[in-house]
């Protein structure tokens, strides 16, 4: 029986940092314990300063969580282009819409629960309906805010935002790809929703990552099944794929950072070439990435598929990694799901 080290083929990876690949080779129980990690909200805070340097039309709006997201650093650098609205998310979103009508590019920052739920009416009627050029920068996406509990866990953010006409919905897997997303959003004409993590995730990629809005990236080759994941579940998918490799199952992994517009072509190609698909997200299974992929498969190329996501339940407070385990979205659950769909291929 081959050992993990023998089986681990670096050539199957694309764009994944060597540190990540060797961490996966060394230990599959908790491979990312020692690798460099960062909450992607901080990547946004860094990226927005660089963007502010380049583009004088960029303004940052906050709602009293600037110190948490670290956009107060933008405020220090560009005080005249920073607006803290206090704890008043609805006012912030509609004001962002107004600013966008004059040619500014507002990045409206708050937690995802408040961006997509408290201020949803403003987000729909004042930003998306008129198609205004507002970027909604939402931290604490999915169930990434472990300890804060349900009121701060936006397990519906991707579903809600995907359902709105004119929306573009992005959930980057790590800090470098999140920075690229923040920059790409500025070039995109129209509203963009960006979902960041509250808890740290590993640096999986570098800044040469081929990030393009609407283009999913195959980050691991495989032939027996494909895992399509986003945000914090991409790193869980890499762990799952490596565990499956040791059991002789060859799994492709796709970072589907853009939930909308969905990269139908890459998904259908994976479906045709691997014949089984599992989706992974720390969002509810209703309406998010899993639903989006299922819709494409059902209408075009029905094959065995399973969605990993939060199943019709509110999560709870706890350390992030324990929370995703308890609520069914960690690498173990992905492994089981892949084995199930591969078995169903017949």
């Amino acid at each position: 029986m081959a050992t993990g080290m023998d089986r681990l083929e670096t050539s199957v990876y694309h764009h994944v940092r060597p540190e990540i690949i060797s961490a996966l080779a060394a230990n599959l129980d908790d491979p990312f314990a020692e690798v460099e990690k960062q909450p992607t909200r901080y990547a946004y805070a860094e990226a927005i300063i660089e963007l502010g340097e380049r583009n004088p039309d960029v303004v940052v709006l906050d709602a009293d969580v600037a110190k948490s997201i670290k956009t107060h650093e933008f405020a220090q650098r560009f005080p005249e282009r920073s607006f803290n609205f206090g704890i008043a998310e609805q006012n912030m979103m509609a004001a962002a819409a107004g600013m966008a009508t004059t040619g500014l590019i507002p990045y409206a920052s708050t937690y995802a629960v408040f961006a997509t739920m408290r201020a949803l009416d403003q987000v729909r009627n004042s930003i998306h309906y008129p198609g205004l050029n507002v970027k909604i920068a939402a931290s604490h996406g999915g169930i990434t805010p472990g300890p804060d509990g349900v009121t701060h866990q936006a397990q519906e953010d991707l579903s809600i935002m995907r359902s709105i006409a004119n929306s573009t919905v992005i959930a980057g897997a790590d800090s470098p790809s999140t920075k690229l997303a923040v920059w790409a959003a500025a070039e995109w004409d129209g509203p963009v929703y960006l979902s960041f993590t509250r808890d740290p995730v590993p640096f999986l990629f570098d800044l040469d990552y081929p990030f393009e809005i609407g283009k999913a990236v195959t980050i691991r080759e495989g032939t027996d099944a494909t895992i399509i994941a986003n945000r914090d579940i991409v790193c869980q998918s890499l762990i799952a794929a490596e565990r499956l490799a040791r059991k002789g199952v060859s799994v492709r992994v796709i970072d589907c950072h853009t939930v909308k517009p969905l990269d139908v072509e890459t998904i259908l190609q994976a479906a045709e070439e691997t014949g089984a698909i599992v989706t992974g997200e720390s969002n509810v299974i209703n309406g998010g990435l899993g639903s989006a992929v299922a819709e494409v498969l059902v209408e075009n190329f029905p094959i065995p598929m399973k969605r990993i996501g939060v199943r019709d339940v509110f999560a709870e407070s706890g350390p992030y990694l324990e929370v995703i385990k308890k609520y069914g979205v960690s690498s173990e659950h992905i492994v089981d799901a892949v084995e199930e769909v591969v078995a169903r291929k017949g």
Partner: peptide, 13 residues
């Protein structure tokens, strides 16, 4: 407080 399975959530429940 704030641990998994606690009766004391990060925000009151």
């Amino acid at each position: 407080l704030r641990q998994l399975n606690s009766i004391l959530q990060g925000h009151a429940d």
